[in-house]
């Protein structure tokens, strides 16, 4: 993924991480509450934990006040590491008070933001399967995909992905795109079976069969729905048939309604592709679903 530097990017904020020095049932009481609030927790004890970075962190200490304000975080390895940071005595405080106090203190002292402002839903590529065919980049209308310096497909802007939309994973002919939070395998990361590969390939064929104007059809569908006085009965009938096909496609690709209704028009996509100077083959040029997109395609 490329560097994220957009000030409105939900991924740019520093994350709040606390060191929790508590034992047994007390840890068990505090941990779920802190995690639910989006706070990462390093729990002390025997064994080792991920080395800390240089950032100051909040040190929650359940010991009495006479305890030292540093703690060995690499216990049992013969190596001790003192940490510095704001020590907060939490003895006797209930879990809600601890969690609220941590958030308040973190805000006041700039220890980072809790996670939770953005639902982490985005495609993850299994490069063992990916053949770099770029179907996903062509299909996604929201600028999630790009290519890296070596021209490999890259999930460049994960935060642009539409929550709960797994559509690009369904057009990938190699079943190489995961959404770890998806309900079903293999898109959720479960093992890929031979029949999964066949099924995904069929889905690509379905979209090809529907013709190259999926997105203009979708627009027509919305415009028609608003036109209560349409006299074009034959057209309406034809449109209904196409809508039925599109509905089927929507179900097959599992595209949420709100994502469908926010798709840009075929003209917009073509204009953006042209502006970008992308090479679009004659066949592709009639097919906005396969036209290259730019980041401006985000509605």
């Amino acid at each position: 993924m490329s560097a994220l530097s957009d000030p409105t990017n939900p991924l740019d904020a520093n994350r709040l991480r606390v060191l929790l020095d508590a034992e047994g049932s007390r840890r068990a009481e505090l941990l779920p509450r802190l995690l639910a609030q989006g706070v990462a927790v390093t729990a002390t004890g025997s064994g080792t934990v991920a080395p800390l970075d240089d950032a100051e962190l909040l040190y929650l200490c359940d010991a009495d006040d006479s305890a030292q304000s540093t703690v060995e975080i690499v216990a049992g390895e013969g190596e001790a590491e003192g940490i510095s940071g704001s020590r907060i005595g939490i003895r006797g405080l209930d879990a809600d008070s601890v969690a609220d106090g941590v958030l308040e203190r973190a805000r006041g002292e700039g220890h980072g933001e809790p996670a939770g402002g953005w639902t982490p839903w985005f495609p993850v590529i299994d490069y063992d399967r990916c053949t770099n065919c770029m179907q996903c980049l062509s299909f996604c209308l929201f600028g999630v995909y790009d290519v890296d310096d070596e021209q490999r497909i890259d999930v460049a802007q994960p935060q642009r992905c539409k929550t709960n939309c797994p559509a690009c994973s369904r057009v990938c002919p190699e079943v190489a795109i995961l959404f770890p939070k998806y309900r079903h395998g293999p898109i959720n990361g479960d093992q890929v079976q031979a029949h999964d590969v066949e099924r995904e390939k069929m889905k690509v064929d379905v979209s090809a069969l529907l013709g190259g104007d999926i997105y203009s059809l979708l627009r027509q569908r919305h415009e028609r729905a608003e036109s209560r006085f349409s006299k074009e009965r034959d057209d309406d009938r034809a449109l209904k048939e196409r809508q039925r096909c599109l509905k089927k496609l929507q179900e097959d690709l599992d595209i949420p309604d709100d994502v469908l209704s926010s798709l840009p028009s075929a003209e917009q996509i073509r204009a953006k592709a042209a502006a970008r100077g992308a090479s679009v083959s004659p066949a592709e040029s009639t097919d906005p679903a396969t036209a290259p997109t730019t980041s401006e395609d985000t509605p």
Partner: peptide, 24 residues
């Protein structure tokens, strides 16, 4: 989580690994 927390094992717990991965 309850089992881990009730042990004396040191460990890291994160709200959402996907989010950490997205932000690298």
């Amino acid at each position: 989580l309850h089992g881990l927390a009730s042990s004396d094992l040191a460990f890291d717990a994160v709200p959402d690994l996907c989010e950490l991965a997205a932000r690298r």
